[in-house]
Amino acid sequence: MPARNARILIIEDEKGIVLAIDGWFRHHSKTLSGIVLDHAPDLASGMDRAKDAHLIILDLTLPDSQDPMETLKRIPELRQRAPVLVLTGREDSDFPPDRNITVLGVSEYGAEAVLFKSMMQSPEGMDWLILSMQAALLRRAYVLKHGPEAIAPN
């Protein structure tokens, strides 16, 4: 059976981040020939392209969604199509004062993980992103195969 192409959608307006991810994938293009990277610079086009995606990387501050809270609220809609990883430039502690991004994004809106852009400055940070992508993809496959109750706590 021929290998399927997996589409990874990056909804991100910062070119540097997109180039960093794209560069990593290009560097390993031989190994990752079955993965197609797609890029949407704003939330509206991201929502359009999400239907074909198998994994979505979402920036919280986008040109058409400056309020990170508003972007967070779109996660449930996005994750019906594919698992969502949140990538943000905001530090966890100053957002918002009572609840941090990780707790809000993961527990309340259903993101698979929250990663910080400052992490992307090191090769280890890129490894985190790649491994989080891997974990999110496998978990989605597991849930689809065995049902959501398979990972429900108790």
């Binding site: 399927r4 190994t31 990752l32 079955g34 490894d127 790649i130 891997q134 989605r140 496959a141 689809l144």
Partner: peptide, 23 residues
């Protein structure tokens, strides 16, 4: 080492894409 990480991602992506598409 990086290639090893890339290879595991490729396997995960292939598997997940197949299951997601089937679903």
């Amino acid at each position: 080492r990086e290639n090893a990480i890339a290879a595991t991602l490729a396997r995960a992506a292939e598997k997940s894409a197949r299951i997601q598409d089937d679903a």
